[in-house]
Amino acid sequence: MASNADPGKVAPLRTALRVDQLMKRFVSQRGDVLALDRVSFAASAGEFVCLVGPSGCGKSTLLRLIAGLLAPTAGNVVFTPGQAQPQIAMVFQDAGLFPWLRVVDNVAFGLEARGMAPAVRRNEALELLQRTGLAEFAGHYPYELSGGMQQRVALARALVTQPDLLLLDEPFRALDAQTRLLMQEQLLRLWEARACLVLFVTHDIEEAILLGDRVLVMSGRPGQILMELDVPLSRPRDLSGRSHVEIEEMRWRIWKMLEPAARSSLALPPSEA
């Protein structure tokens, strides 16, 4: 892989994604778990797709299958154009930083694996740390950072590899409301500049609507796609204009869809209304 001093320069492959009848069953002595049941959807190049669903419905599993970290029980993940294997970068739900590496080395990890020279990869890592507001923590170890900061480091580690497909597993979960808003904006800016395909998992319906071109709603386990909604908001998005009527209406529809599964996953009685 050729090194490139300017992170803005390597254009993403026009990667599109098709998930076809994907099924995943975890087998163990304590009983099998059907995590995903015939999940199908497609995402076109440059799209920002959000995925919401109740806890345990297989969202993380779906991302792992797409990243090739798990093998599906049945079904396929197909990338187009088929000729090149796209660069995939995932932000794991638990950050997954290496505690023995400094922040800057954590961020540069993927670049180092590609054989990029130390000075070059350091510069690129520092630039992304700058953009995620963590420049002054470059020399720290992960344990010296808060949970939300660790999550931002994980985001920087993914972005610095200039992926064609970016998989985000609840990356802003641990952030306070203000930082979260800023990070959402920052992510949108970075994505608009790069226009790679993004799959964004969240449990926050509003976040899904605000960020996504499209929202996929999943059922409780075994996870299935219940519905797909196009988000009618224009780009670039103004995240502070949040009280649009359409958003409220979408939010309500998604919640109505999710409510039974959410209730049953908590073993609550069905609502009266």
Partner: peptide, 23 residues
């Protein structure tokens, strides 16, 4: 999970040893 993250970000061979397995 550590193996998974290392593998996902492309670490193998010498780098995997030096940056992940050894520490």
């Amino acid at each position: 999970h550590t193996w998974e993250v290392a593998r996902h970000y492309g670490a193998r061979g010498w780098m995997l040893l030096r940056r992940v397995v050894w520490p």
